[in-house]
Design a binder for these strands. Structure first.
Lengths: 245, 245
DNA sequence: CTCTCATGTTGATCTGAGTCAAGGCGTGCG
DNA sequence: CGCACGCCTTGACTCAGATCAACATGAGAG
């Protein structure tokens, strides 16, 4: 398993993951290597329960995890989607604030919290890098608040698909000219939990967008987007809104 | 104006504001003093428009500001409430992502971004402190996502009042035994924008909570809470949920 | 003092999304 | 093979909150 990452450009250091390799000198990297370890989870497994002591911080290497919050009566809201390179946990707080669940098989690269915090104290740019990442997440969360508070069901669905599509597109080297195609990493129910809807409404709005030619479906999880601008219009997004996740 | 703050315990350094004075040595404080300055805004004035270049970072000294996002058709969502000691702006990004508006008269203590960033490079614990604060804000934003996505109008109102009440209570040295009383710093419309509701619904649910004896009103902006536990129950909050804002 | 304007309340009605219920795939298993 | 189970779709009905509209209150300006 670990071999798989050995020849990735940025290895698996959570700090390097987001392209700050240049700032890590070899001593620091060696130190990080010494305290890191891996954890694997199966799809559906819970990584941490809200309220649990959290002994580690880390980042996602492969797979997808979700951050969710649940009310006593079972109402559930997903508050974050963790993709490869995303950071989990917080230096300085002992207890997890949200449930973290693996929605696919998941591999995380972890550091025990204590040594990581000590390391952070000695290596200023780690805190700076984490600060940048956290500020990005905060902006994304706030963008999501607009979606949850003010968008219609149709706009919510269109926004979600657009965000996933945009991320896929940005991973590809050249922007594809023609039809974009996207794999949804979430079930209808998970989409509903993310968007503050019910799964029935998600299903209905997907059908509606399909009927109106905004998207087409191939199986349940694969979406083709003939015209990204059209989709963005349906999403009610500000012209550029492209800075997010 | 500056005299007013001279004898506050923590002065106005945004880093010290949240009780890390002990970690600031005198050289650092002197350096911060040199680059800081004040800005005042009148109630209703816009501090920054989303998309504007942001030349400074800073923290609120007195007054209240809001972070909002607006769609082209005018739908508006408040995504943050800035209270004294809250930090505004982000080292590392040139452009504001949200509108910042003063809802009351507002004084901010600012630092030009460039020198502040340089300072941050030299003074590791500033980044660490900002990281902590940002993580707190992120948790609060995620908590708010549950409210926006899943709570009923009544629960939303109760939650908002509870949050404000809790903060007031925590400022007072001794927890008051009896009736808590809270000043709402927001108009009905601003509350609606914060909660993802319309102002009519806010008004109706306030009346309903009053009729049911959960709160009582004295004027429009002053709320008395005979039983905080009852209010929390109405808010649908998890037992403790007290870690936030 | 009255007028105006911003703010807040309340009522009547409408509607988007939730709820309840009935199937429809597709996959894995006995 | 057929059955069960997880996931998804669709229909009928309901209801919480939005919308539209009228009116109340209070503070400041002239």
């Amino acid at each position: 398993m670990q071999d798989h990452f050995a020849h990735q450009h940025c290895g698996d250091c959570p700090i390097r993951h987001r392209a700050v390799c240049a700032r890590c000198d070899s001593d620091e990297l060696a130190a990080l290597e010494q305290i890191k370890y891996y954890r694997s989870y199966q799809a559906g497994q819970t990584v941490i329960w809200s309220g649990d002591r959290m002994e580690f911080v880390g980042s996602v290497v492969t797979g997808i995890a979700t951050l969710t919050q649940t009310m006593e009566d079972g109402r559930r809201q997903m508050v974050g989607l963790l993709l490869p390179s995303d950071f989990v946990g917080r230096p300085g707080r002992a207890v997890a604030a949200f449930d973290v669940t693996a929605t696919t098989d998941l591999v995380m690269c972890c550091f025990r919290k204590k040594p990581f915090e000590e390391m952070m104290g000695r290596t200023p740019h780690i805190a700076q890098r984490l600060l940048e990442m956290t500020l990005d997440e905060l902006d994304a969360a706030r963008e999501w608040m607009l979606l949850l508070g003010r968008k219609t069901a149709r706009e919510k669905i269109a926004s979600l698909i657009a965000i996933i599509a945009r991320r896929e597109a940005s991973l590809q080297v050249r922007r594809p000219k023609g039809v974009l195609s996207v794999d949804l990493p979430l079930t209808r129910e998970e989409m509903a939990d993310y968007l503050g809807l019910t799964l029935e409404t998600v299903s209905r709005q997907m059908s509606a967008l399909k009927k109106d030619g905004v998207i087409s479906l191939e199986g349940n999880r694969h979406v083709m987007i003939p015209d990204l601008d059209r989709l963005l219009e349906e999403a009610g997004d500000d012209s550029d809104g492209g800075m997010l996740v």
